[in-house]
């Protein structure tokens, strides 16, 4: 039967072994994978500004992006493609807060430059290769 020291060895050995694999994959992902998948050369100062605003206003507290965040408001991964820049800019500073089908958004007071940053961030996110996410609705594609 398993002894306590064997159990300890299993714990320490297993942890170290899988940690090393995990770190190796991390390096490969960051060095070889991410730049290609995310077009990191396209992260301009505008995109960075947009992401700062995305974080600072906790947009993830209602929306999801890449499917991550809260489930109160629509996923914005492909919002640039779906709505276009004009629509996005209108929503952000809409007087009284944008309201569609009953759910209210916070009214922001972004400058024109900030709005452009947010649009640039969405445009960049929309181009990231997300391994097929969000999925195409299967019922719709069959109908077409």
């Amino acid at each position: 039967m398993l002894s306590k020291s064997q159990a300890k060895l299993f714990f320490l050995g297993g942890t170290v072994f899988f940690l090393i694999i995990f770190l190796a994959l991390t390096v490969d992902t960051l060095v070889n994978g991410v730049p290609k998948h995310t077009h990191s050369d396209q992260i301009t100062d505008q995109v960075k500004l947009g992401r700062r605003l995305w974080d600072a206003n906790n947009c993830m507290g209602c929306h999801t992006i890449m499917g991550e965040g809260a489930y109160y408001a629509p996923d914005l991964t492909k919002v640039y493609e779906r709505r276009g820049p004009k629509y996005i800019k209108t929503v952000l500073n809409f007087p009284g807060g944008w309201q569609l089908h009953g759910r209210r958004m916070v009214q922001y007071n972004f400058t024109e430059q900030e709005k452009d940053g947010i649009v640039a961030f969405f445009k960049w996110v929309g181009n990231v290769d997300l391994n097929g996410f969000p999925p195409k609705p299967s019922l719709q594609s069959e109908q077409k």
Binding site: G14, F18, D28, T38
Partner: peptide, 18 residues
């Protein structure tokens, strides 16, 4: 840890990684 460390990958699926 045997499962959980590499299990982190299930959060990575659709975030722009290989």
């Amino acid at each position: 840890f045997l499962s959980g460390i590499l299990g982190t990958g299930h959060h990575y699926y659709y975030t722009g990684v290989p």
